[in-house]
Computed example of a mutant assay.
Amino acid sequence: MAADFSVVLDELNTTLKSIEAVLRIDDMRNEIADLEQQAAAPDLWNDVEAAQALTSRLSYLQGDLRRVEELRSRLDDVALMHEMAEEEGDEATTAETERELTSIRAVIDELEVRTLLNGEYDSREALVTIRSEAGGVDAADFAEMLMRMYLRWAERHKYPTEVYDVSYAEEAGIKSATFAVKVPYAYGTLSVEQGTHRLVRISPFDNQGRRQTSFAGVEVLPVVEQTDHVDIPENEIRVDVFRSSGPGGQSVNTTDSAVRMTHIPTGIVVSCQNEKSQIQNRAAALRVLQARLLVVRQAEQRAEMDALKGEGSSWGNQMRSYVLHPYQMVKDLRTEHETGNTASVLDGEIDAFIESGIRWRRQQETVDAG
């Protein structure tokens, strides 16, 4: 067992060195020191949005650095403990060090996935939109289940979120919803969730108790930054205002503060009704519209590249199946990752699906590049 332990220890040491190189630990320390200095400025909160972005970035980098340093310390400690336990013939401590090494491996595997997020916009915050598709009231209910799943996932990780817009369906559930996940790398992480999700269950809305298949779509966009230069001329936008509405269509606001924004050249429509004022809703809607247009521009550039290479995208649209009847199973149709614990998945435990999706995407990119 000692030989196995040494082999695993060497593997993990090599992987952690690779992670430290990719994350550029020294550069990270320098950036943290610089951000800490900026965060100490007395006028920091004069610009609330800039201050929030700065403190969020600082907190994220500090967390990353702490994780790497703790892993390095744990690896050094477990190597020393194992060596001493072997010398003294202490079987209980030897077994404990082997359990610790297994635990360290799980954390290193998780951190390694983060180093695979090196796409152009992967480090951005994310805008997530969920829409009900085929399946009537069951699809609307499923869309709401997915929204809750992602918000619970963010809550588990202590990632801040902001709901911009919810359009409620008449009987139950939602027609659509848009929310932001405000943490670095949210886009790179959640972008593997994009696509069509399928639910199979006994419909709670069918008085004959028949099995129903319904669909919901998930769209993930990177939050636009100033460097993206997504400028939209005012004459290309039509803005309509209306009253916010809650479940069942009842008005939740006595003023016309909700905003619907239409980009005339493309026909893209976004709305925002969850902020307190029309000005805030207008700003949030503009952010979502800019993100959509950025992705349109990306798609056009990708299509040009594919045309040059003479090929199209090989990635399928339907990506995950949630079966609640006649058996319990959530299965990713791309990675083959699956679990029978459907309740925990719908309660936000989706990290294993996300990690396998990120690894799968990297494999696809490697194949396409080859």
Rank of each mutant, 00 (worst) to 15 (best):
E83F: 04
R292M: 05
D368S: 11
G173N: 00
Y164M: 15
A51W: 03
S244H: 09
R131N: 15
K276T: 08
T213I: 14
I104T: 10
H229L: 14
R124E: 01
H337L: 09
G188D: 01
T55Y: 00
Y164V: 08
S132H: 09
D368A: 13
L54E: 11
E225T: 10
L58H: 02
N341M: 01
Y187P: 03
T97M: 04
A177I: 08
S277H: 07
I232K: 03
S257W: 01
S59H: 15
K309S: 10
H263S: 04
A50C: 04
Q328S: 15
D368W: 03
R320K: 13
D26W: 05
W360A: 05
V128S: 07
A343V: 14
S277P: 12
M149Y: 07
S18W: 01
A303F: 04
K276I: 01
I104P: 08
I130E: 09
E11G: 02
G63D: 09
D228V: 13
Y327A: 07
T129L: 04
H325P: 03
L117W: 07
T14K: 15
L101W: 08
D109P: 09
Q52M: 05
F205I: 11
D4N: 13
N118L: 01
P247A: 12
G188Q: 00
E125V: 02
N30L: 14
R148F: 10
V113Y: 07
E355M: 02
Y121M: 11
P326R: 04
S73D: 06
S245N: 12
D206L: 08
A134W: 15
T97P: 02
G357N: 02
F215S: 06
D206Q: 06
Q301T: 13
R72D: 07
V223N: 07
A85G: 11
N46W: 04
A177N: 04
Q318T: 15
L286N: 08
E155Y: 05
Q318L: 12
G195R: 01
R29Q: 11
A177P: 01
E311N: 11
E83H: 07
R297I: 01
I32Q: 07
M261Y: 07
E336F: 09
K158C: 06
Y150R: 11
W45N: 11
H337A: 10
E170F: 00
E162M: 09
V8K: 15
W315A: 15
G248Y: 14
W360F: 10
Q208P: 00
E171M: 01
A283M: 08
N207F: 02
S123K: 14
G89W: 03
L289C: 02
A177T: 15
Q212A: 09
P42W: 06
D10Q: 11
L58V: 12
S321V: 13
F179S: 02
I202C: 06
R124K: 12
S167F: 01
D34K: 09
R260D: 12
R334A: 14
A134M: 14
V48Q: 10
P222Q: 08
V330L: 03
V200N: 03
L80N: 06
S56Y: 03
L111W: 15
E349F: 00
G357F: 03
I104A: 12
Y187D: 00
A186V: 05
G357V: 06
H82G: 04
V192Q: 05
E20N: 03
Q328I: 05
D138R: 13
Q278F: 05
F242I: 10
T93M: 14
P265Q: 02
E234P: 07
M81E: 07
Q328H: 15
T342E: 00
S73M: 11
G89R: 06
G209Y: 05
M81W: 11
A169I: 00
V223F: 14
